Computed example of a mutant assay.
Amino acid sequence: MLTTKQDNRLTAAENVAAALALDPTAYAQDKALGQIRQELDARLDELRPLRQQGVRAASPGATKTKGQRRELLCTAAAEVAGDLYSYATDKQDRSLQTSADYNYSSLFKLRPTALTDLAQHILDAAETHQAALLDYGVTPKRLQELRDALASFTGTKNDPRQQITEGKAARIAIREQFNQLATLLQDRLDRSLRKYARASPDFYQKVLAARIVVDRPGGHKGSGISETPKPQ
């Protein structure tokens, strides 16, 4: 969603548009101000939907699912690794013992990429000795469980980083839209209004009053429109 400060500035811009719409005769011959009004309406049409859409954080449900997938992968890999270690011990295969010397805790604390690499290594070793491991309870069903858990976790291990990247990009895009709105109001509207302070003071005061942003409590720091335009 928009920050409170951005929402305040959007409301102020809407008030300006309403003030301009109330008295179009005051600037009927002013081509520049008429164009500014059209551009302002277009900007507002782009920004209003952001009140409903905005920037959303990852939901707790998505985080929980990611954690569950990690747990499933660590459980399946640790169980197969345990049986693989027993087999390696019986065969006095030191290298295979080292490859399988992992438990749930040691797997769970690994970074996502390291976890997937190690789980794949355990799976590869188990598949290499698949026939012999049947005597140790490593069935095709258990190996398939490990494959499925690995595929599921691998498909989502980059989700948090992707969500952060997408969220940051969305915030930057919204900030840029408000910067463009601020440029329209500060650099163009305020300058075009100067002459109306004498030519049409009532109209000038109405638009000037609409330009004031009242910050509601709970606002966040954000970019937007200047709060109090100064007559120039």
Results as ranks from 00 to 15, higher is better:
151 A>S: 05
167 G>E: 08
110 L>A: 08
183 T>W: 10
192 S>Y: 08
96 L>Q: 12
91 K>E: 13
100 A>D: 12
162 Q>R: 14
113 T>W: 09
120 Q>S: 07
166 E>L: 09
124 D>M: 03
88 A>Y: 04
184 L>C: 10
134 L>S: 13
145 E>S: 09
107 L>N: 02
157 K>A: 01
190 D>M: 10
175 R>S: 14
193 L>Y: 04
190 D>H: 11
99 S>G: 14
199 A>H: 02
153 F>D: 02
98 T>F: 09
99 S>I: 14
107 L>C: 05
109 K>N: 10
182 A>I: 11
150 L>P: 00
123 L>Y: 02
201 P>G: 09
115 L>C: 10
125 A>E: 12
176 E>N: 13
174 I>Q: 03
108 F>K: 01
180 Q>R: 15
103 N>G: 04
125 A>T: 14
198 R>Y: 10
159 D>G: 00
91 K>L: 04
169 A>S: 10
128 T>S: 07
122 I>C: 00
183 T>M: 09
178 F>H: 03
132 A>V: 05
121 H>C: 03
104 Y>P: 00
201 P>H: 04
194 R>K: 13
108 F>S: 08
143 L>S: 06
191 R>M: 12
95 S>G: 12
140 P>T: 13
192 S>F: 07
150 L>F: 01
129 H>G: 00
106 S>T: 15
129 H>T: 07
199 A>Q: 11
128 T>M: 11
195 K>W: 08
175 R>I: 07
163 Q>P: 00
168 K>L: 12
148 D>A: 05
177 Q>T: 08
142 R>M: 06
199 A>F: 06
150 L>M: 01
121 H>E: 10
173 A>S: 08
197 A>W: 02
166 E>I: 07
87 Y>K: 02
170 A>C: 04
155 G>P: 06
147 R>D: 12
150 L>S: 02
197 A>F: 09
154 T>A: 02
177 Q>P: 01
149 A>H: 02
110 L>H: 06
144 Q>I: 05
127 E>D: 15
142 R>G: 02
137 G>H: 05
123 L>K: 00
153 F>M: 05
149 A>L: 02
187 D>Q: 15
129 H>I: 05
132 A>N: 13
187 D>H: 13
140 P>G: 09
132 A>F: 07
98 T>V: 14
92 Q>A: 09
115 L>K: 02
175 R>C: 06
197 A>T: 10
117 D>M: 03
92 Q>D: 10
118 L>R: 13
128 T>R: 10
92 Q>L: 05
200 S>V: 06
177 Q>D: 12
137 G>S: 05
154 T>L: 00
135 D>M: 08
132 A>G: 08
97 Q>N: 12
97 Q>P: 10
90 D>A: 06
199 A>D: 14
192 S>M: 11
155 G>C: 00
172 I>T: 15
121 H>T: 12
154 T>P: 01
176 E>I: 13
154 T>I: 00
92 Q>S: 08
168 K>Q: 14
